[in-house]
Amino acid sequence: MAPLATPDLDIERDQQTTPEPPSSWQTVVWNDPVNLMSYVSHVFRTYFGFDTPTAHRLMLAVHHDGHAVVARGPREVMEAHVQAMHDFGLWATVRKDPS
């Protein structure tokens, strides 16, 4: 027995667009004159789970470059990270990932 043709369904399927991947956002931690470098490294290790060399490298980027991108992902997650950084007393913002 031959399958029944369903032209209406086939047209609908062809007209559907492929969903765009979720846009990527960044959590950016900024330098401030208040927090010690050791504290910033500690926050990066304890909150984000970075190993010591990674936390140290990111802390140095904050210190020398004025900021560091510490996380990338969906906006809601990045907003939660920013709130956590504020709770730790660090200055952080969310921005759209330019890549």
Rank of each mutant, 00 (worst) to 15 (best):
R75P: 09
P53I: 14
V69W: 11
F44N: 03
M59H: 05
R75Q: 14
D32C: 01
H67F: 12
A71E: 09
N35M: 05
P53L: 11
N31T: 01
A55Q: 13
W30N: 00
S41M: 07
V69Q: 06
M37N: 03
L36S: 08
V62W: 10
Y39D: 02
A61G: 06
G66K: 10
R72G: 01
P74Y: 15
A71D: 12
M37V: 01
V69I: 14
T52I: 13
N35Y: 04
M37A: 02
L36F: 07
T52E: 15
T52C: 04
V62I: 10
V40A: 03
D32T: 00
G73V: 09
M59E: 14
F44D: 03
G49P: 00
F50D: 11
H67L: 10
Y47R: 03
M37G: 00
P53V: 13
Y47F: 14
A68Y: 09
H64M: 07
H64A: 09
G49S: 03
R75K: 14
L58S: 09
F50K: 13
V62L: 07
L36Y: 08
V70Q: 14
H56R: 15
A61H: 12
M78Q: 09
T46Y: 07
S38P: 00
W30T: 02
V34P: 00
G73E: 07
V43H: 04
Y47I: 09
G66N: 08
T52K: 15
H63I: 05
S41N: 06
H64L: 06
G73C: 08
R72L: 10
P53Q: 08
R45Y: 05
H42R: 03
P74L: 15
D51R: 13
P53N: 09
E76A: 15
A68R: 07
H67R: 13
R57V: 04
L36A: 09
P74K: 15
P53Y: 13
V34S: 02
R45P: 01
L60N: 08
G49R: 02
L58R: 12
M78W: 13
R45Q: 12
V77Y: 10
R72T: 15
R57W: 15
A55E: 13
F44G: 01
R75H: 11
H63S: 04
V34N: 03
T54V: 13
M37Y: 02
H56A: 07
F44M: 14
H42E: 09
V77R: 13
F50E: 11
T52F: 13
W30D: 02
S41L: 01
P74V: 12
R57Y: 13
N35K: 06
Y39M: 01
S41A: 12
H56L: 05
E76H: 14
Y39Q: 03
T46A: 11
M59A: 12
D51P: 11
V77T: 15
V70T: 15
V70A: 07
F44E: 01
T52D: 15
M78H: 11
S41E: 09
P74C: 09
L36Q: 03
V43G: 04
M37D: 03
H42F: 15
G49K: 02
H42G: 02
M78R: 08
R45K: 14
V62S: 06
V62Q: 07
R45C: 01
M78P: 04
A61Y: 05
H63R: 04
